[in-house]
Structures are given as C-alpha cells and as structure tokens.
Design a binder for these strands. Structure first.
Length: 482
RNA sequence: GUCCCCAUCGACUAGCGGUCUAGGUCACGGCCCUUUCAAGGCCGAAACGGGGGUUCGAAUCCCCCUGGGGACGCCA
C-alpha cells in the first residue's frame, strides 16, 4: 500500500475561516487515519492580493485546532523557478504554446462573450502563429504567456471519492494559461506541479474546485503523470444559505477561540458538519481518526449552526480536565474586565478548579464559565434590580442578618458545614430553606441564577459572605452595590 | 447565458428497494427532578421539493421540472 500524502493549501488572502478549517481537518483526519503525511502549503502566487501578515495567523489557527502538519509549510512564491522549468518542458514538447494576446484584448473578448450570453473561451488565435507574427509581437515588446494545448473535443471524467464520476465536455474548456507573461505560474498549474512533486496521493479540497479538476487533469496528462484521488467536500454555508462571509458574524477560527470555544469542540462540530458516523454526536480526536472516512462525507452543502456548536462545546466543557479548564478560563478573567492582569495571575489554581467544577454544567463557553468570578473573587458586581425587588424584601432582611451571625462560627467553612449550620439556624427560626435560598443568593451574587448555594458560599469565603448578608438591606436602595 | 454540484424535520444528519406508522442530535414546547439556573430523565411538535417512469414494492434507482450553491480570469 503506497503511503497517503495529503495537503492543505490555503491562500493568504484572509483569515482561516470555519470552511477552510474543516477542509484542513478532513485532510488531517485522513492522513492520521492512514498513517500518512499531512502537508501545509501556502498558495501565494498572487502578489497583489497576497497578505503575508496573514500567514502567521493561519498557522496559529491550525496549531490551536491541533491540526499539526508533518511537512512544510511550503510557499509557492518560493518555487517560481520550478514552475517555469516545468512549463518550459511542456513548451519544448509542443504541449504548450506562447500567447501574445494582451490582458486587455482578452478581457474585451471576455466581456463581449458574456454580454452575448456566451461562454467566454479563448479563441486559440496564438496556437498557430506564423514566425512573422511572432517576430512582430516581439518587436512590439510583448511578453508572451504560456497556454496549454488541450484537445478540442472529447470528454474528461473526474473520478471523485465523494461525488462519483463527473463528466466534462472538453468543448467547455479552452487553452488556458499556465504561465503568466511575467513568468509566474497560474493557480491550476502551480497546484499540479506541486501536487506531483510533493507526491500528493489524495486531493481533498472544497467543492468550488471541482470545475478546476478537468483542467488540472489535463496538466497531469501533459506530464504523463497519473492523477491522484480527488475528493471534493461540500461547502459550509451561512444561515441564509449563502457563502459564509464577514457579514454573517463569526466565521474565523480565532473568533471562536476568543469567545471561549474549546478547540476539540470546534473540531468535533466541524467534523460532524457534513460527515457522520451513525447517530454519534460527540467524538474525541482519537475517535474521529479511527472512524473517519471520505465515503461517509455527505455530498450536500451544510449550514453552520452556532447553537449546535455551543451545545457541543458545553459537552466538552463538562468532560474536560478541570485543571486545564481553570487555566483556560484565567485569561477570560482579564478579557471580561473582571480582574486585572496581576489579580488574575494571583488567583490560586485550586480556586479556578473549584469554580470550573461548580459552573461548567451551566456554561456553554469559557467566557460564560469565567463570569461568576465577578462575585466569587471580587466585590465589583452589581445587583440585578429586579432580583432585589423580588427577593430582598424587608421581612427577609433580619433572616439574612441572622444567618450571617450563624455562619460566623462555622468551622471549617465548607459547603457541608455551611449547609448544616444554615439548616440548623432555619429550624430555630421555624423557616424553610426555600424561603431564604433565593434572597440569600441575590444578596450574595446579585442575581437569581447560579450553582448550589452552599458550594457558592464556600467559594466566596466567610468574610465576604457575612459582609454581604449583613449589608443585604443596602442593596434595596437604587444603584446600591456591595 | 453555458457548464458543474446538491436536494429527508427550522438546522446537522441516519436511511444505501421491503425491517419507515422515516431514527438520532441541536433548537423549540410540556412534564419530572430541584434552594435558583443549568445539567439529567420522560413526552411532544416537526421532513422524504414537485411530476413522470422502473419495480410485486421506492425516501432509496432513472428522467424532467423547480429550488439552492459553485464555476466560467495572465484570482486562488
């Protein structure tokens, strides 16, 4: 069995978005599954649109997702001489020819064809240029581009692992340019030269390239090289079924990272988007590798659903190591303006672990998980006026103050002991927990929702609990804050 | 305009000719649990785009239509 070699080949014209990330993921999974090689290659032949500053973020996104490559990154911009060499080979063998038409002339014809509702195809006028014509063009100082000489009729069949056989009529294609007049290769040519020289066995890429495939196959044919296996994965669409773009909100991998999505959750969700394994929804990285197959990729485009991502994220939040989550939450303490850099750094990791364990079931993101820190680790939080209005009623205040007294003596100040003392105090007052739980919660946290009351108290700590209970009445006043 | 791809609940999907009164998951609604919110459990509403064939039998195979998407550059 020849070993599998696949590649992810982004062009640095934008951030890595979820669609690209999924393509990378499928390549990576396929490589891991077959103990093959995953190659990273930047397709940066377009000097004008290229943004070198985007290369690092793309790399960083892949690293964050855990999609590590085995080879590369390669840069097409550093391989221009190679493409030129390969193109000249084709020229010498008569499989390519020089075209002296100027971009302006071609663009004009193209527009005319489009206006006449015709398919714009090159008219092959330079295919049989006389030596005199050629000399004339050269005297004019025109630099020729190189075009591939393709058969004028017949069909070409793409054998796709996901879509089966797709037939293209060669009459739909033209002698396309492989080398620009300035000596740079065009996309289709560079891709094929790279895929051949890098020994790529499986080309797993987005659906939008299916139409390029016959062209690329013609280049393979010109070089007398067997074609790899093609697998065109469906697109990821936005809610309105259009191509995912900035106006649809979060699309970049980084945006999800910054909102507190776990990389394994994004990977899990992206894998399930267009791919499935029976009824299973939650997968670890290892399970994905084990169970992934190209054949199980659903052929139709899929809509990116943030709600489900959040659900998957919550699932991973619930099962991930609390220690790790604690450290992942730490930066959010600063980002959410809860603590200063120094304060966040000073929070003992045990405290963070306790918070994580206590709140992970009700958090869908790391950001949500960090939120309770506001009242757990600082006094800098506000009371929800509605909650105060509803629960911190005058008749509850003495009860809370009494409870504060009862808690002063609790030793150690743990959830179990706090509960014992609280219940004892309530018994003595002939009250039930239900009567005081919410008022107590509002006094302590400023809100009506949260984790178990006694665990929360333990985490807040004796001093603060007592102080907040004693000052519960102050929260009554408008704008009051403890 | 031409070419290509796609088509099951609102969303992701299972289904690969009979086991489908179409299953699971998210979201939605209800109930239970409960100190709140979650989580969890139970229940519910919700789909084979339309029309022709093929077949004893079609969500599954074929054709047409419709709808959606993509491509048609000296962009990638």
């Amino acid at each position: 069995m020849s070993s599998v070699r696949v590649r992810f080949a982004p062009s640095p014209t934008g951030e890595l978005h979820v669609g690209g990330a999924r393509t990378a993921l499928f390549n990576w999974l396929f490589a891991r599954k077959h103990k093959g090689v995953f190659i990273l290659r930047f397709e940066d032949t377009d000097i004008e649109r290229n943004r070198p500053e985007l290369i690092e973020p793309i790399i960083e996104s892949l690293r964050w997702l855990g999609l590590l490559w085995d080879e590369g990154p390669y840069f097409q911009s550093q391989r221009f001489s190679l493409y030129r060499e390969w193109a000249e080979r084709l020229l010498n063998e008569g499989k390519a020819y020089k075209c002296y038409c100027t971009p302006e002339e071609l663009e004009q014809k193209r527009q005319r064809a489009l206006a006449a509702k015709q398919k714009p195809l090159y008219d092959r006028r330079c295919r049989a240029l006389s030596p005199q014509d050629e000399e004339k063009f050269m005297r004019e100082g025109r630099q020729p581009a190189l075009r591939l000489k393709i058969p004028e009729s017949g069909t070409i069949i793409v054998n796709d692992a996901i879509r089966g056989q797709v037939e293209f009529d060669l009459a739909e294609l033209d002698d396309f340019i492989i080398l620009r007049s300035d000596g740079r290769p065009t996309y289709n040519f560079a891709v094929v030269v790279d895929d051949i020289t890098m020994g790529i066995t499986h080309v797993i890429r987005a659906d939008e390239h299916l139409n390029n495939t016959p062209k690329q196959m013609l280049i393979y044919q010109a070089f007398g090289h067997p074609v790899p296996v093609f697998a065109h994965v469906p697109m990821v669409l936005a809610k309105d079924r259009s191509k995912l773009s900035k106006r649809h909100g979060a699309t970049a991998v980084f945006e999800f990272r910054d909102r507190g999505i776990l990389p394994e959750a994004l990977v899990n969700y992206l894998a399930r988007l267009g791919w499935s394994y029976g009824d299973q929804e939650i997968f670890s990285r290892e399970e994905l590798i084990e169970k992934f197959s190209l054949e199980a990729i659903h052929p139709s485009a899929a809509i990116f659903d943030e709600e489900k991502l959040l659900w998957v994220n919550q699932h991973h939040l619930k099962t991930s190591d609390p220690k790790r989550l604690g450290e992942l939450v730490r930066p959010f303490l600063v980002k959410l303006g809860i603590l200063s850099e120094a304060e966040a750094h000073a929070v003992p990791s045990e405290k963070l672990v306790q918070m994580v364990v206590l709140f992970r079931e009700r958090a869908r993101t790391l950001a949500e998980l960090a939120e309770p820190a506001r009242y757990l680790f600082t006094d800098n939080f506000s009371h929800d006026p509605e909650a105060v209005q509803k629960f911190l009623t005058p008749e509850k205040i003495p009860l809370l103050e009494g409870l504060a007294g009862a808690l002063a003596a609790v030793e150690p100040f743990t959830a179990t002991e706090i509960e014992r003392a609280t219940r004892a105090y309530l018994d003595s007052q002939g009250k039930t927990l239900k009567e005081i739980a919410q008022p107590c919660r509002v006094a302590l946290t400023g809100r009506t929702t949260g984790a178990g009351l006694f665990e929360t108290m333990e985490l807040i700590g004796r001093e603060r609990v007592i102080a907040r209970l004693r000052r519960a009445s102050l929260a009554q006043q408008p704008q009051a804050s403890l």
